[in-house]
Write a protein that binds this DNA or RNA. Structure first.
Lengths: 152, 152
DNA sequence: CCCCTAATTGGCAGAATCTGCCAATATTGA
DNA sequence: TCAATATTGGCAGATTCTGCCAATTAGGGG
């Protein structure tokens, strides 16, 4: 992982479908070694995959919600149960463990407010062991990039 | 935007570098119309781009932080100033406006805790007009997917 | 300072993929 | 039912990928 690898990574975060020759040109390499570096990064799991960036509204899911959840108990079983359930809920795109009061933060996508209510009632509450839920709707998005800072 | 378009989108969210023939096969089309649908989705801005999914830790940025910020005043000028500054800070990967107390939530990536302190001191405070900052460090990530729910 | 080793690079060629065009098919509305 | 329209499938030239080999560069020991 040298500076060239990081250059390659940022270029592919900007445009994941860039052709190998364009990528090579962008980072001042010839196509062969460039491709080999990319394959190495993929094999090492540094590049975990590629993904289309899609406008959720156009797709039909205009409402983004950040949900913060606190559990009643934090025993092994309770935690495992909660985390396994999160994996299975399609509306939950992200689930992070936060420091502090052993909280979770979810990023959830729904078509409308009614669907959000149903989501809480039919998907989250049935998980059980939840002490409190804090909901923040996303009113607008000022910035959203996949590109890491160049740093060091 | 029909069910086939949504199928295509989810397939490309799973693997943004899928070849057009594989994609066509996955959604039961022949390569030609499949490619045309993809190009349409791109032209309409539904597919906004493609991006490599990278392990931040391997890249050298192991600390993810969610930062919630409340402004002192919410005049046009204050808001514009804040939002423009956020665009310019490389460590800020996301900045959302949240409903409620006119708050923002940032997703920030830094190499270590010292860098986070510097980030707050040298990048956020100088923006000015900030009433309060609430920091939540990400302790672990249970789930992180780009794939939208199938829905409807 | 030089040499030796190893890693990385650059280029080439066969194979796979893309993509613009045309005819055929399916869909919609009257 | 029929006609108009949109969508589809397949083909061919152009582009891109990728495995192999020689050349170059970088690092360490004598």
């Amino acid at each position: 992982m040298d500076s060239k690898d990081r250059q390659i990574i940022r270029a592919l975060q900007c445009d994941g479908r860039m052709t190998n020759q364009d990528l090579a040109e962008a980072v001042n390499l010839s196509p062969s070694p460039c491709l080999r570096r990319v394959r190495n990064l993929e094999a090492q799991g540094v590049i975990q995959g590629y993904s289309a960036v899609v406008d959720a509204k156009s797709y039909g899911l205009p409402i983004t919600v950040f949900v913060r959840i606190k559990l009643e108990r934090h025993g092994e079983a309770d935690v495992k149960n909660f985390e396994r359930k999160m994996q299975l809920i399609d509306e939950v795109l992200e689930c992070h463990v936060l420091t502090g009061a052993m909280d979770y933060q979810l990023r959830v996508l729904v078509p409308d407010l009614e669907a959000y209510e149903e989501f809480i009632r039919n998907r989250i509450h049935p998980v059980g062991g939840i002490a409190s839920i804090d909901t923040s709707f996303v009113y607008g998005t000022v910035k959203r990039t996949a590109v890491f800072p160049a740093a060091r």
